[in-house]
């Protein structure tokens, strides 16, 4: 947000989450919300990451462990299905990978610069040592 002068903002350093009227936010998905420019949703922390999760939907069972334990609201679940990772808000902590129960895992961490298509094409096979 532009660095505005003292006479250009709301009194009391007050911030609005949304522009205009917002009703039933608890049942309105992010894509249908009218976020204000003051909502951190419009910002990005992608540059925090040194490693990124890559999602392989071939092995995903939609258990939603990654969704519930993601600290950054970055697992996108729609209609009870895991559909991807919000790469603007993911900080690369790796929790989603740790809690993923499938074998092989449906999420794995790779260096931030890694090519996603290449990593998906050489996804590890089922690990027979663990169940």
């Amino acid at each position: 947000m532009a660095k505005r002068g003292w006479d250009e903002f709301e009194i009391g350093a007050m911030l609005r989450s949304f522009d205009g009227v917002s009703n039933d936010i608890a049942t309105t998905l992010q894509e249908d919300r009218n976020y204000s420019q003051s909502n951190s949703f419009v910002a990005s922390v992608a540059d925090w990451r040194i490693a990124k999760p890559v999602f392989n939907k071939d092995f995903c069972i939609d258990c939603q462990f990654c969704w519930i334990y993601c600290p950054d609201m970055s697992i996108i679940a729609r209609d009870k299905k895991m559909i991807g990772v919000d790469m603007d808000h993911c900080k690369g902590c790796g929790i989603c990978v740790e809690v993923c129960p499938t074998n092989p895992k449906s999420l794995l961490m790779f260096p931030e610069q890694a090519d996603e298509e290449a990593e998906l094409s050489q996804w590890p096979a089922k690990d027979k040592e663990t169940k």
């Binding site: 660095k3 505005r4 002068g5 003292w6 903002f9 009391g12 350093a13 007050m14 911030l15 609005r16 989450s17 949304f18 009227v21 917002s22 009703n23 936010i25 003051s38």
Partner: peptide, 18 residues
């Protein structure tokens, strides 16, 4: 209908203006 955030933090880049 108009959620509001009160009592934010402002550091050297905003505090003076407020």
């Amino acid at each position: 209908e108009h959620p509001v955030t009160h009592g934010v933090q402002t550091e050297e880049d905003w505090h003076f203006e407020h």
